[in-house]
C-alpha cells in the first residue's frame, strides 16, 4: 500500500493502482469518456487530467500510477478550464441533436455539457459528415456522434477477441470502422454498444421505442443458456425494448448476441403463453392443472404398459441449473429411468 494525498485527503491505496482507480475507490469523482475499468487505459479523451504537485503539466489520472507521497489535485480552476475546452471541442464536432437522439438521458457527453453548462460554444468549424449508413441488422452506427474514445475497438479486441472494427485514418479524419468501411459483419454481441458513451452505437431494435425517462428497468437472468448472465430489461409501455447488463454483475456486463438483441420473442404474438393439448389432431388451449394432470396420466400409462425405460426426457440449456437438476431427479426418481439428456449436456 502507498499513501497519497488526493484533494487534501490522505488515503492509502494499493501499489500499482492508477490515480483514477484510487480516486474512485475513495469516492472522488473524476470525469472520463474513454475509461472503462474493464478495459486497458487509453488516455485519449484527456478529461481525467489532474495536477500532481511537482509536475510541470497535468497528467491523465487513468494512465498514471500512484507513487508514495504523491499529492494530487483532481480539480482546480485550470483543470476545469481544460476540461471545459475539451467538452466544447467535442461538441464542436458533434451533431448536437439531443432532441431526437436515442441516447439522450443516458449520454455521458450530454451529461458533461450539462455539468459544464455549455450553452454557447466558443469553437465551431468543419464537422465530420458521414452520409452512408451501416446496413447490418443489429447495430446502428452513427459515426458523426463518435468521439473516438476507442472503447468499442478495445472491447471488441480485448474482451471479445474479434477485432471487427478498428480506428482507421488519422487526425480529424480518424474513424472507427470495419475493414474497407463495409457494413459491420461480426458476432453482433453488442459489447461495443454497451460501452459507447454517446449515441454513436445504438441497438437498432430499440430505435424510436421510447425515451430513457420512460423506461422501467427490470433485473432478470438471461433465459438463453445455463451461463445465467444477469440482464437488465428496459421496459417501456409493457414491452421490452432493450437489454443491458450491469458491469457489477457476475458476467461483468458482457452479453452475447442472443442475450443482448434476442429479446423480441418476449413480445411476439406467436409466443406460447398457455399449455396446448392436441385433441382430434388440433392443439387446444388448456389450463396448467389440466395439462399437468394429462402429462402425469399419460406417463403413468406408458410406464405401466412398457416399463420406465420406454420413457426418455430431454431438457434444455435455457433452463437454470436448478431446473435441470430437478428434471433429471424427476426422471430418475419419479419416472425411474436414466434416459435423460440435455441439448448442451452439462
Amino acid at each position: 500500500m502507498v499513501s497519497i494525498t488526493i484533494d487534501g485527503r490522505r488515503v492509502k491505496v494499493r501499489e500499482g493502482a492508477t490515480i483514477l482507480q484510487a480516486s474512485r475507490e475513495n469516492d472522488i469523482y473524476i470525469p472520463t469518456l474513454c475509461d472503462d475499468p474493464r478495459l486497458e487505459p487509453y488516455g485519449g479523451c484527456r478529461l481525467c487530467l489532474v495536477q500532481i504537485k511537482g509536475m510541470a503539466r497535468p497528467v491523465t489520472a487513468c494512465t498514471t500510477p500512484v507513487s508514495e507521497g504523491m499529492i494530487v489535485e483532481t480539480t482546480n480552476d485550470e483543470i476545469e478550464d481544460l476540461r471545459r475546452t475539451i467538452v466544447e471541442l467535442l461538441l464542436s464536432d458533434h451533431p448536437n441533436d439531443c432532441m431526437v437522439c436515442e441516447k439522450a438521458g443516458d449520454c455521458t457527453l450530454q451529461e458533461l455539457a450539462y455539468f459544464y453548462n455549455i450553452r454557447k460554444n466558443r469553437f465551431y468549424g468543419e464537422r465530420r459528415q458521414y452520409a452512408e449508413r451501416d446496413g447490418n441488422p443489429f447495430i446502428e452506427r452513427d459515426m458523426e456522434k463518435c468521439i473516438l474514445c476507442g472503447k468499442c475497438v478495445r472491447v471488441c479486441s480485448e474482451v471479445q477477441g474479434v477485432s471487427a472494427i478498428e480506428i482507421a485514418y488519422r487526425g480529424f479524419s480518424a474513424k472507427v470502422c470495419p475493414p474497407f468501411e463495409k457494413d459491420l459483419d461480426c458476432e453482433f454481441c453488442g459489447q461495443c454498444v454497451s460501452v459507447c458513451p454517446t449515441g454513436a452505437l445504438m441497438g437498432k431494435l430499440s430505435m424510436g421505442k421510447g425515451r430513457q425517462k420512460d423506461i422501467e428497468k427490470v433485473e432478470s437472468v438471461c433465459p438463453y443458456c445455463g451461463c445465467g448472465c444477469n440482464i437488465t430489461l428496459h421496459v417501456a409501455r409493457n414491452e421490452v425494448i432493450r437489454v443491458s447488463s450491469r458491469p457489477d454483475s457476475l458476467n461483468e456486463g458482457w452479453l452475447c448476441v442472443k442475450g443482448r438483441f434476442g429479446f423480441k420473442f418476449n413480445s411476439s404474438p406467436d409466443r406460447l403463453k398457455h399449455p396446448l393439448i392436441k385433441r382430434n389432431g388440433r392443439f387446444e388451449e388448456a389450463s396448467w392443472d389440466e395439462a399437468l394432470d394429462y402429462v402425469a396420466q399419460r406417463l403413468g400409462e406408458i410406464k405401466d404398459r412398457y416399463g420406465a425405460d420406454a420413457i426418455a426426457g430431454l431438457s434444455s440449456a435455457r433452463c437454470t441449473n436448478e431446473e435441470n437438476y430437478l428434471f433429471q431427479k424427476f426422471m430418475r426418481a419419479a419416472v425411474g429411468t436414466n434416459n435423460v439428456d440435455h441439448c448442451a449436456r452439462y
Partner: peptide
Amino acid sequence: ESCGKCVPCRI
C-alpha cells in the same frame, strides 16, 4: 499529422 487519439490535438 495528428494521429487523432486525443481530443485537444485532434479537434
